[in-house]
């Protein structure tokens, strides 16, 4: 079967960026997909399905751009899910996070498993 490839460019919008809990949630979510998934900040590319260390090593703060790339049968679903989780702000409770953080239930729901 031909492999699919999906790429999505996302901006980190939550106040605290991709912190440790976020990295753990994103890594756990990525592991649910069969596709090979990478995430890049500039030239720094890491395996999105490995340990949280990989996501943390990006040092992705608010406003920074990440490129998600998946290759495999569920590539499109994988990048959609990860982009959704990033957009949902990891249930961040910081007073400085955007008000819309709590209004993105789909991504938050996915995050429960982490």
């Amino acid at each position: 079967m031909a492999e699919n490839e999906a790429t999505r460019t996302v901006t980190v919008t939550n106040y605290e960026g991709v912190h440790l809990r976020a990295a753990t949630l994103l890594g756990s979510l990525a592991q649910r997909f069969d596709s090979t998934i990478s995430v890049a900040k500039g030239n720094h590319v890491v395996d999105a399905k490995s340990t949280p260390l990989q996501w943390l090593s990006l040092g992705a703060g608010q406003g920074e751009v990440l490129v998600l790339k998946a290759v495999g049968q569920d590539a499109a679903e994988a990048v959609d899910a990860l982009a959704g989780m990033l957009a949902a702000h990891f249930e961040e409770t910081s007073h400085r996070c955007h008000d819309d953080a709590s209004q993105a239930p789909s991504g938050e729901e996915r995050g429960k498993g982490g």
Binding site: Y15, E16, G17, V18, H19, L20, P52, L53, Q54, L56, S57, L58, G59, A60, G61, Q62, S94, R96
Partner: peptide
């Protein structure tokens, strides 16, 4: 400090890059 999330991320970035 609560108002310095960037510093926290940079520290995590350093720790994780080295530990890889």
């Amino acid at each position: 400090p609560p108002d310095r999330p960037g510093d926290h991320l940079r520290a995590l970035e350093n720790i994780s890059r080295q530990l890889r």
